[in-house]
Design a protein around this nucleic acid. Sequence first.
DNA 1: ATTCAATTTTGTCCAGGACAAATATCATGG
DNA 2: CCATGATATTTGTCCTGGACAAAATTGAAT
Lengths: 303, 303
Amino acid sequence: METQHSTDSVSNIAAVERDTGLSKDTLRVWERRYGFPVPLRDANGDRLYPSAQVEKLRLIRRLIDQGKRPAKVIGASTEELLALIGDMPDSSAAATANHSMLQYVRLHRSAELAAALRQALLKQGLQRFAAETVAPLNEAIGEAWMRGEIDVSEEHLYTEQVQNVLRGAIGAHIGAGTRPRVLLTTFPDEEHVLGLLMVEATLVAEGAHCLSLGTRTPLPDLRSAAVDGGFDVVGLSFSAAYPSRQAIDDLLQLRAMLPASIAMWAGGSAVKGKGKRLPDIRVVDSLADCVTALAEWRVAHLG
Amino acid sequence: METQHSTDSVSNIAAVERDTGLSKDTLRVWERRYGFPVPLRDANGDRLYPSAQVEKLRLIRRLIDQGKRPAKVIGASTEELLALIGDMPDSSAAATANHSMLQYVRLHRSAELAAALRQALLKQGLQRFAAETVAPLNEAIGEAWMRGEIDVSEEHLYTEQVQNVLRGAIGAHIGAGTRPRVLLTTFPDEEHVLGLLMVEATLVAEGAHCLSLGTRTPLPDLRSAAVDGGFDVVGLSFSAAYPSRQAIDDLLQLRAMLPASIAMWAGGSAVKGKGKRLPDIRVVDSLADCVTALAEWRVAHLG
DNA sequence: ATTCAATTTTGTCCAGGACAAATATCATGG
DNA sequence: CCATGATATTTGTCCTGGACAAAATTGAAT
């Protein structure tokens, strides 16, 4: 019943599950089938994972989330995995991101980061700030994390500062009474919040009335919130880690629960290009496409 | 808004784990030992939990988090559980909470809620707003949720609106260069964010320099962030659900990793009254006690 | 090239046993 | 009476090894 944290020695299986996102069952079956990881054992026969194996598991997890197959990556050495990461498609996001902000994250310069974010917001306005500053930064941070160039606390610092700035700006736009009324959230297995905030910022800047429920809203609760609140649109956000199939199933299930008068919009890499399999759901490609979807809705419903 | 009564759907064991916080192992062993829950089975023998059983499991989970023992509550009927909840000690928080705000939450009146929160902030100032408005509201919401008077989407709506207001106000206080420099976060198994934000608001209002890393920071990352960032204090927040023993173990482990020059403060019901077992850690009783701890630090370090 | 069927891969679930940490109970001494 | 410590019970987590279906890949046929 011990729950230890990953010091640089060993972690129990519960800590590895928490830190890698791989279930205990998956960890055991990988060991049985692929011969990795091979944890030590304590006096009671319980698995103890050295931190090097946990690190490698996190790399493997990220690669699988991006489409690699377990059999192809589990056997590889840590060096080969890092090489694979370098080959991943959009490894150029860092180039378009604001370089000094990235440095502030790496150096734990939170005050400078916050100041730079606020300055960019003032200069660009909320909408361009979300699309041209936050979005590329998110990608650059994700890639840097995968390469081990930044650690969890730096990623957290970044997320917190961006949240503070975006929420402050969103709160300043009081768009009560405007249309459409958009309800934003994620499904119960999706916990990434920044995508949602960026969409909210983009829509609010266009004069829509937005309400975000944050992450992980159960479907029945989401349905009643949308119906009772008189919303015109329900927006769902997905990160790259969300299984595409599950996204489609969940969306169709929600679509069947909602009256046809409430539109559904879905965005994120899990639904990219899946428009054909999602009838009556507007697949949103990008933040810019949010604006288009908004304009379409207004033409259709407000004349 | 009445209890969202049974949608007569069923959940698999993974969904129940996600929605109740009870592990798959725990769900199976309860079934074996106590005869509850007794899920249906699908064609393959996999468990299917009716929503009524999931609801009851959530009640049981909350009661156990508050100190009840499983054997005492698992056998009880849903009615008996609700009676137990009525008997819980601090069932009077609702009385001190702002009643109209609670109504806004129940009625999904997000715009009115946001306006009321902002008005209270302006009237009370940041510090009293956190202590006298947000803290009682948190308790009242928690109790109402337990009684089934509000659902997940309403709790989310509340959390989002409070976050927006608190983060906006915190962002407005730019306390760079002031002392002490306080690093705030939670341990990896603690995901409640509002406690952290309330502490940050309280300290920032007293002119401290605060940086929050949000929730779930691994200990090694927390250590390096505190040391590299030149922080004077590391503050940890715990909710009622955090096992007291684990909180003590984790705090002592972190204490051993940090240099003596960095103070540690811990707050929340999991550490209440445990001061004797936490040498060299300042146990903070309440938001008001945060201010005392701050004053103590300043006397000791700044003369 | 597209569709469809067969095959392999992969994650999740199951049963039932075991163990140690957490908690309660009880005895003893201040 | 409270405190301390020994003993018993409760409780959550981990184990093994088997099974199955959904997803992805491969191969065949149109």
